[in-house]
Structures are given as C-alpha cells and as structure tokens.
C-alpha cells in the first residue's frame, strides 16, 4: 500500500493492475544481457549475479508471508535445503531436467510450508515462527540421517554439459535463476496489488477485525505460507549444480537463514521492491566483502545491520527514502 497522507481531494484510489509489464520487460532484458555478455565475461561475474538473484527469490518469497501478512518465517535455510535435496534425490533416481526439479522442489517445500502452517497458524503468529525455527533443525536431522542423498558426508553432483544456446552450464543456471526471480517478483506484485494483498494487509494489521470483515484468515495465511515455502524451495533447487558438492552445513547455511530475513527488513517490507533492493544491496556488499574479510565476519555485519534497522529504521531503506523525499516535497 502506498504512503498515506491527509489530502483534501479524495478520488477513490484504484489499485494498479496486478500484472506488472515493466518487471516482465526488465526481467527479459536482463536475460538478453546475460545471453549476450554471459559467454564473454569471467565466470566470477556469472556466479556473483546468480547469488544475488538467488537472494532476490529468497527475500521476495520471505516477504510474501513476512511483509504482507506479518508472519515471520525463520526456517528459510530449511526450505532452501529441501529444494537442494529434492534436486539431489531426483538426480539420483533419473536424469531430470532442471526446470522439472525446480517445480518438484517448489511442490515439496510448499507442502512443508502448508503443513507447518496448518498445524500452527490457528494460534498466535509467534508459534508459527518458533515452529519454523525448530523445523530447520528437524529437517537437517532428517537429511543427516538420510544416506540416499549423502547424509552427513554430503553428495557430489555432476554439472551436465552446456545446453544450446548457452555457452556454459553456469550461464544456463544464471538465466534459470533470473527467470525464477522474475516469476517471484511478479507473483509478489500480483499479491500486493490484488484483493489477496489487501486481505493479508488486514490480517497483518488486526486479525480479529479482518475476520469480522469477512477475510478468511486461515486460508489466506496458508496460501502465503505455501507460496513462501515454495519460492524458497525453488531457489534451492538449482543450488547443487551451482556448487557441485552439497553437505548439510552448506544447504542449511547460516548465511541464507539470516539474509532471507535481513534483506527484506533492511530493504523495507511494505512493497515488493524493498526485498529486491535489500537483496541487491546486501548480496552485492557481502560478495565484495568476502574477498577482504571472512564470511563469518560478513554475517556478523549483516546481523548488526538487521538489529540496527529493526530498532531505528523499521520501515527499511524504502521507508527512509520516502520520508526523505516527503520532507523535501
């Protein structure tokens, strides 16, 4: 919802169209750039872009539930890992094409989100949050004990040969992740601008009053939980091909757990572009800093930024810019 200000002329504000053509065009333009430049630049840049886009998907997925409905999912790393291991399990069974593995990962992670939500969303929101925290631990326990996908030893995944028209498999992965990010953002926009987003916003502001206004609280929350889980799972599905060796600590990574929350909260949870901005800003900074300082120190900085933002700037970068522009206007 846009910023509210007292105004004297009150035209009935219309919601913009749920489908965003500009985002689609921008997404396709990025794909075009990747197709033309992807074969010429060093692989480092492709990997960098992949990581940032992966964070765009995670952060956007988190925000569908966290930002729009106000329910905090702490289990991003768990959902991401479910995606990873869906791909690994499928790869052990048959040569499944990547898009199919991504869909499967979305279904599995979405169902886990739905199940967790179904059991806990009737209660206060914090119980859902606590359940997702515990869920990440229990999923890790399951994977560690499941030797078919490598157990605690981990699993090697062979990167297939490049598929035409891509110059390399990494380029293919990057394009796939770009499309996924585009789909996630388009979905977030569609929710934000439709009656679903309005219902979720009502739930976020006052659940009891929302129900009294006819909003089917549990159903909408379950929808958001499922989508949130599904996008996180889909973001994880190509990851095994990206790093080629997956073990539980790399799939259930600390970096993903903290970034998926820090990015939308630092970017701003009220609109779709807050999480995207947060993912790009934080993702880029971390990749640059990793060269100079350790990844643990990196995460420490993210954690501190998260705490600083939620205490002094709860509306995020987007909110700060808006307030700043509002003051100048």
């Amino acid at each position: 919802m846009t910023a509210l200000s007292p105004s004297l002329s009150p035209p009935a504000r219309r919601l913009p169209k749920p489908f965003s053509w500009p985002v689609l065009v921008a997404g396709l333009a990025i794909v075009a750039v990747e197709m033309t430049l992807g074969a010429q630049v060093s692989e480092y840049y492709l990997l960098l872009a992949y990581i940032i886009l992966q964070y765009v998907v995670l952060s956007t997925g988190w925000n569908i539930l966290g930002g729009y409905a106000g329910y905090v999912n702490f289990g991003t790393a768990g959902f991401f890992a479910v995606g990873c291991y869906t791909t690994i399990a499928l790869e052990k069974l048959a040569a499944v094409p990547l898009p199919l593995a991504i869909l499967a990962a979305g279904v599995v992670a979405g169902l886990i989100g739905l199940g967790t939500g179904y059991l806990t969303l009737r209660l206060r929101g914090v119980f859902f949050s606590i359940a997702t925290l515990a869920l990440a631990v229990v999923l890790q326990t399951l994977i560690v004990n499941w030797s078919f996908v490598g157990g605690s030893r981990g699993a090697y995944v062979m990167r297939p040969d490049a598929i035409a028209p891509f110059a390399s498999y990494v380029q293919y992965l990057l394009v796939v992740m770009t499309v996924l990010a585009m789909v996630a953002v388009l979905a977030a926009i569609a929710i934000e601008r439709s009656w679903i987003g309005m219902g979720l916003a009502a739930i976020r502001d006052d659940e009891l009053a929302a129900e009294a206004s006819g909003v089917p609280g549990l159903r909408l929350k379950l929808l958001a939980t499922t989508l949130c889980g599904a996008f996180m799972g889909m973001a994880g599905a190509p990851f095994p091909y990206f790093i080629t060796y997956v073990d539980p600590p790399s799939a259930f990574s600390l970096a993903i757990a903290v970034n998926a929350i820090a990015m939308p909260l630092i970017g701003g949870t009220a609109t779709w572009w807050g999480p995207v901005l947060g993912a790009v800003l934080l993702g880029f900074t971390q990749q640059v800093l990793t060269v100079t300082i350790s990844s643990a120190a990196n995460l420490l900085i993210v954690g501190i930024l998260l705490v600083v933002f939620v205490t002094v700037a709860p509306t995020g970068v987007v909110g700060i810019t808006r307030a700043w522009r509002g003051r100048r206007a």
Binding site: G66, V126, L254, A296, G303, I304, L306, T311
Partner: peptide
Amino acid sequence: FFERRGDDSLQGLAFFFGIMFIVEISLVL
C-alpha cells in the same frame, strides 16, 4: 524500541533473531 511502539511483533522477532546471530557469530570469530 519495540514494546512502547506497540504494534510491531515482526520487528521484535527479527530483533531477537539478529541478536542470536550476533552472539553466535561473535563466538565463532
């Protein structure tokens, strides 16, 4: 920062999550 402001359980949860990470990563370092 949180209780007085009243309406933001989301921020409060994220705050403790951030604190948890700061403590954990500091110990790692």
